[in-house]
Design a binder for these strands. Structure first.
Length: 824
RNA sequence: GCCGAAGUGGCGGAAUGGUAGACGCGGUGGUCUCAAAAACCAUUGGGAGUUAAAUCCCGUGUGAGUUCGAAUCUCACCUUCGGCACCA
């Protein structure tokens, strides 16, 4: 295999010197200071803030540099742009490092932030650092606590004893969204089940509204993922009679989406955690059931839900009655039924449900067909039939197609009072408790006499103690810190204990987009005027991996804050764009592969502009790209050529013979380039933006060689190139702009308009086909050719004549100013 | 298993019903140089053809279809990537 020689393109200029010079100047001039009341329509463009891991890696660059270019572009279009930056500063890695190395999470996090802040400046970004948010600052997290209190008052936050996903490595519980393939999303450990008292946010209250994506322009993929995650199913709750046991509960309610199969129910299954299990189980079955429940509890969620696992279960010894046919059927317990979905009770129809079928086969339970497959002649099924068909064995509904009977049977059940239509959701409430130190303390106090008491708003923030001990005990380090947990009850003044769990860090990022509008505000979570000036975010960018976590939670918060009267709109982010992932040498970057690209190294060598350029050039932003050092060289070469073009001594044009056509052609090319660049920038098509700019600069090179245009045309052509490049390569554009004698920053320039007339070609190529095959290309003046003329030209072509000579022409197709197709 | 996206030169990619391969990388030949690197110029999908050209044929994962015309639309299949996966 040929190994490409490592060649390094030399820069014509000192990139670091120039870039640092302008970064300093921009800061002194407060060039990027955002003014709430500046002229121009507002444009709020936000990119997902980073976790302060210590170093800005190439993935951060890939997310932020193109986003910065786009925000700069909007600014040059005349918008008043807010494009802020902050740090998602709470989280497990800092605390785990503290356990390992003994460095306090705050110290380490703040160190990392100051390093990354410098790296972000070095990238040449236009962030206004006065608006920075650092979520581990009490000025920020006190508002997490404030929101928690409002949620608590409005029944959107509640505490419950429930089984939770426990990560044994991170020593904390996780939200459902943070469990991927049964493993911890962060550290890949197998998640265990633990029953604990936990705080939840009632995201399910907004399930229906969250399904509505009509007010946002997001990638269909993300909308679908959210829709699937919420997982609304419409069906019927049906009550099976258990009155024979003389209990308080007279019925067992099941949820089904296949009410058409109700006559085929041959047994009913309860989730092992269902409270009726204990009550209904007969004495002779008690031991078996108890053993089964213990066994089911021991299993992790993954083991229990594994699709390939054989289905297991036990009889309770109890029976219930199907209200439709009066049949008495057995009640079982099986762990394939989930307590948390629907009613936690399943009416099993083995003939028409894959899971029930397997279960029935294993335990020898009857299988009764009630929806007939096509051409079915009464034989037994070898697998569950889940398709459509005609009702059989269904009393008065026999003969109906099941697509009809679904609503007929539901109506019948409702009219008889045996049940009602209902919906079930896959999404669960958001578990926000974390048994960790480095997060927002939950502002709740437990008092022996008053119970659960919220901290007074005036007493916020509940701050993290600095002297916590970090030990991996499985409980919050705050539990070991007496100064923290020992407190007075806000209600009775007696001795009370603080909640020692902290909040999931996704709470921080659920509303940070609003805090950026007034990040220093002390009288509330945000300034009500400024939040409505800037919000919602017009353009959000970030990775698709947050589809059902951050993006869903942020939408939930927006709706909840709206209902609390704090916001007057429904969605946090109007447009969303997901960038892809950057890889290296066709492989995912990882330390173990040793192919991690360290941007700082390249920035030192060729400057931030070249790196920015290359990241935007290497492929469509949403599809990601493959880093290659030689590819970067190409960008360096191009920037060098632009440098040469723009720093040419104009004397070379002074005594040229001006060619009127060359001037007109250059002007045409200029307008065409402006049009293409603006339109592609708008759509985040940075790679084709750069291709257009390269074509334009190649054209300028040709003009330069021929020296055929006047000084004024040349200067304007080059200045327009610099303006179009400014969002992408902010430093070099600024430098060359000032070399042209401009006193003010290029970043204060408006993007030039293009003339629609001039931005299209005056001469077009007429393509001539015979039977759809290319035979000739004829240069014709645009727009001035009629169909007759075009066809005539085509038929007269020397290259076409041999193909049509002596043939009968069946059809002539003409696409104006583009193509003639002669069909023979 | 289900849902979704994608498959184009040696490589990254452009073109979303009308000139396939823009732009860039890499390669080849040349200029400059003692030499190299850098830079610059030319060339670069495959094949047939010719002294040279003209010209022709093939070509966008595979196979069919729609159309005057398909990388683009439709169907089936293959591969890769992403998401979901006992949710009744």
């Amino acid at each position: 295999m040929a190994v490409p020689k490592s060649r390094v393109t030399e820069l014509r200029y000192d990139a670091s010197k120039i870039e640092l010079k302008w970064q300093k100047r921009w800061e002194e001039d407060e060039l990027y200071k955002v003014r709430d009341t500046a002229a121009g329509q507002k444009w709020y463009e936000l990119t997902m803030y980073p976790y302060p891991s210590g170093d800005l890696h190439i993935g951060h660059w890939y997310a932020m540099a193109p986003a910065d270019a786009h925000a700069r572009f909007k600014r040059m279009q005349g918008y008043n742009v807010l494009h802020p930056m902050g740090f998602d500063a709470f989280g497990l890695p800092a605390e785990n490092a503290a356990i390992r190395e003994g460095i306090h999470p705050r110290v380490r996090t703040m160190d990392n932030i100051s390093n990354m802040r410098q790296q972000l400046r070095r990238m040449g970004t236009m962030y206004d650092w006065d608006r920075e948010i650092v979520t581990c600052s009490p000025d920020y997290y006190r508002w997490n606590q404030w929101i928690f209190l409002q949620f608590y008052k409005n029944d959107l936050a509640y505490r419950a004893y429930a089984p939770a996903n426990w990560c044994p490595k991170d020593n904390t519980v996780l939200a459902n969204e943070q469990v991927v393939d049964g493993k911890c999303e962060r550290c890949d450990s197998m998640v265990e089940r633990r029953e604990l008292n936990q705080w939840f946010f009632r995201v399910t209250k907004y399930a229906d509204e969250l399904l509505d994506h009509s007010q946002i322009q997001w990638p269909e993929k993300i909308n679908t993922m959210q829709t699937n995650w919420i997982g609304r199913s419409e069906g019927v709750d049906v009550e099976f009679d258990i009155s024979e046991y003389g209990l308080k509960e007279k019925v067992l309610t099941t949820f089904t989406t296949r009410i058409d199969t109700i006559y085929g129910v041959t047994f009913v299954v309860l989730a092992p955690e269902h409270p009726l299990v204990e009550i209904l189980t007969t004495p002779e079955n008690k031991e078996a059931v108890d053993n089964y429940i213990v066994q089911a509890r021991r299993q992790s969620e993954v083991e229990r839900l594994s699709t390939d696992k054989a289905k297991t279960g036990v009889y309770t010894g109890a029976y219930c009655i199907n209200p439709l046919n009066g049949r008495r059927i057995p009640i079982l317990v099986a762990d394939y039924v989930l307590r948390t979905y629907g009613t936690g009770v399943v009416m099993a129809v083995p003939a028409h449900d894959e899971r029930d079928f397997k279960f029935a086969k294993k335990y020898g339970l009857p299988i009764e067909i009630v929806v007939s497959p096509d051409e079915w002649n009464g034989e037994e099924l070898s697998t569950a039939y889940t398709g459509e068909g005609v009702q059989v064995n269904s009393e008065q509904f026999d003969g109906l197609h099941n697509t009809e009977s679904i609503s007929k049977i539901a109506d019948y059940i409702e009219s008889k009072g045996w049940g009602r239509r209902n919906k079930a959701y896959r999404i669960r409430d958001w578990l926000i408790s974390r048994q960790r130190y480095w997060g927002t303390p939950i502002p709740i106090v437990y008092c022996d006499s008053c119970g659960t008491v919220p901290v007074e708003e005036d007493d916020l923030p509940v701050t993290l103690p600095d002297d916590a001990e970090f030990k991996p005990t499985g409980e919050s380090p705050l539990k070991l810190n007496e100064c923290f947990w020992k407190t007075e009850c806000p209600s009775c003044g007696g001795i009370a204990i603080r909640e020692t769990d902290t909040m999931d860090t996704f709470v921080d990022s659920s509303w940070y987009q609003f805090r950026f509008t007034s990040s220093g505000y002390t009288k509330g979570i945000f300034d009500p005027d400024l939040v409505s000036t800037w919000s919602p975010v017009d353009q959000y960018t970030g990775g698709a991996e947050h589809a059902v976590m951050h993006l869903l939670y942020a939408r939930f918060f927006t709706k909840a804050l709206r209902d609390l009267g704090l916001l007057d709109f429904d969605e946090p982010f109007i447009r969303l764009f997901n960038q892809g992932h950057i890889i290296a040498n066709h492989q995912k970057m990882s330390k173990s592969r040793g192919n991690v690209i360290a941007p700082d190294k390249y920035v030192r060598r060729v400057g931030a502009d070249a790196v920015r350029c290359y990241l935007m050039f290497l492929g469509p932003w949403d599809r990601g790209g493959d880093w290659s050092d030689t590819g970067l060289n190409g960008m360096v070469r191009w920037i060098n050529r632009v440098w040469d073009l723009a720093s040419r001594d104009l004397k070379f044009l002074k005594d040229t013979s001006i060619d009127g056509k060359a001037v007109a052609d250059l002007n045409r090319m200029k307008h065409k380039t402006i049009r293409r660049v603006v339109s592609d920038m708008e759509q985040f098509k940075f790679n084709t933006v750069l291709a257009s700019l390269m074509e334009y600069s190649n054209e300028l090179n040709m003009v330069l060689e021929r020296k055929s245009v006047d000084v004024k045309s040349w200067t304007d052509a080059v200045e327009k190139l610099l303006i179009l490049m400014a969002p992408i390569t902010p430093h070099i554009s600024e430098e060359l702009w000032s070399q042209f004698g401009h006193e003010t920053s290029i970043h204060l320039e408006k993007l030039p308009d293009w003339d629609p007339e001039l931005s299209s070609d005056d001469v077009v190529t007429l393509v001539v086909q015979v039977n759809g095959r290319l035979r000739d290309r004829i240069e014709i003046p645009a727009e001035s050719v009629t169909e007759e003329e075009a066809v005539k030209l085509a038929k007269e072509s020397d290259k076409v004549i041999p193909h049509i000579r002596g043939k009968v022409i069946k059809r002539e197709i003409y696409v104006p100013a583009k193509l003639v197709n002669i069909v023979i």
